[in-house]
Simulated assay, not measured.
Amino acid sequence: MKTRLLTALLFCASTLLAQKSDTLQITSENINTKVLREGTNRYLVYFKMKKDSVRTQTQFWTRTIKRTDYNGKPAIEITQEWEDKDSIMHIVKSISDATTMQPLYHKTWWNVQTSRTSTTKSINSTIVDFLSKTVDHNGKILSNADTAIQSKRIWDGYKSSLDKYYLNWHLDLETFPLLPYRKGATFVVPFYDPGTASNFQKVAYTVTGSAELIGYDDKKIDCWLLVHESKGNKEVFWISKKTKEVLKLEQEIGGRAYRYKIRLGFSN
């Protein structure tokens, strides 16, 4: 009996140790930027208020990856263009180090409604230059002296990222392909979303297993399932094991709404 109890305790201890050791803090040493494929990808993005309800708030996201040079060093440039039902609502240009994926430059432009009931559009633009350590919001260079709520939050968010290694959260669909996938692994990703009020944070994503998506000509696509959960939010990403691309996101928000991102196979 004692031998069995000791064996059981040792098994539990080894299991817990294995689980703990399979949590990986993401750094520049354990990402692989070589897997990024140059070219243009397009995603269909929409909401459902219930799983069986009609699709609403439909958008198309066009994302283009290009290898280039920036300030004389190899870099990866990613541009984004988001379309809603009748206009361009968001344009982004992001440049990152070609090896570490550390952000070097990030420019965003938004054209959005000021409220759900208003037809008035609000233009917002932000440029974060990580080499010169400047943040330009709507044509004004931010500093510690700024007291306007939005400007102060954007500046404080930028300061929270200083002297740290992080990845650009606005490029999550291009970041997830870089990770070293294996079943049961939890990746703790250092993220910062430049030009927003979000602070630097470390976010956990767990590889819960595998699943298949059915593509064109009934082709089965073997995928990793990458899951992130926080209060009132659950995200499940399907990442192709072959190409490492994000093919699908299903997000459950508070049990009341669902958001989807679907990688389109063909588009104009």
Rank of each mutant, 00 (worst) to 15 (best):
K2E: 11
L5G: 03
T7K: 09
A8D: 05
F11L: 15
C12K: 01
S14E: 00
L16I: 08
L16N: 04
T23A: 04
L24Q: 13
Q25I: 12
S28F: 06
E29S: 11
T33F: 01
E38P: 00
R42W: 00
L44G: 03
V45Q: 12
V45W: 10
K51W: 01
S53L: 01
S53M: 00
V54D: 13
V54H: 11
T58C: 11
Q59F: 10
Q59H: 12
T62V: 11
Y70K: 01
Y70R: 01
N71C: 14
G72M: 00
P74F: 02
A75T: 02
I76S: 03
T79L: 05
T79W: 05
E81F: 03
K85E: 12
M89D: 14
H90T: 15
S96H: 07
T99W: 08
T99P: 05
T100E: 03
T100Y: 02
Q102V: 14
P103M: 06
L104A: 01
Y105R: 10
K107G: 15
T108R: 13
W110N: 13
W110V: 07
V112P: 12
S115F: 01
S115R: 02
R116F: 09
T126W: 12
I127T: 15
V128R: 06
V128N: 04
D129W: 12
K133L: 13
K133P: 10
T134Y: 04
T134N: 06
V135R: 05
G139Q: 02
I141G: 10
N144K: 10
A145D: 06
A148P: 11
A148E: 15
I149Y: 10
K152H: 05
W155M: 00
W155N: 00
W155F: 03
D156Q: 14
S161K: 02
L162K: 08
L167R: 08
L167Q: 08
N168G: 06
D172N: 13
L178S: 02
L179T: 04
L179P: 04
K183I: 10
A185Q: 10
A185T: 14
T186N: 03
V188H: 08
V189S: 02
P190K: 00
Y192G: 09
Y192H: 14
Y192P: 08
P194C: 09
T196M: 07
V203G: 03
V203I: 11
V207D: 07
V207Q: 06
G209R: 02
G209D: 03
S210R: 15
S210M: 15
A211D: 08
E212T: 15
L213H: 07
D217A: 15
D218M: 07
K219P: 08
K220E: 05
D222S: 12
D222V: 07
L226C: 02
H228E: 13
E229Y: 05
E229T: 10
S230R: 14
K231H: 06
G232H: 01
E235N: 11
V236Q: 04
W238R: 02
I239E: 02
I239V: 09
K241T: 03
K241M: 09
T243S: 08
T243G: 01
E245N: 10
V246W: 02
K248I: 02
L249Y: 00
E252G: 06
G255H: 01
A257S: 13
Y260Q: 04
Y260A: 04
I262L: 15
I262E: 13
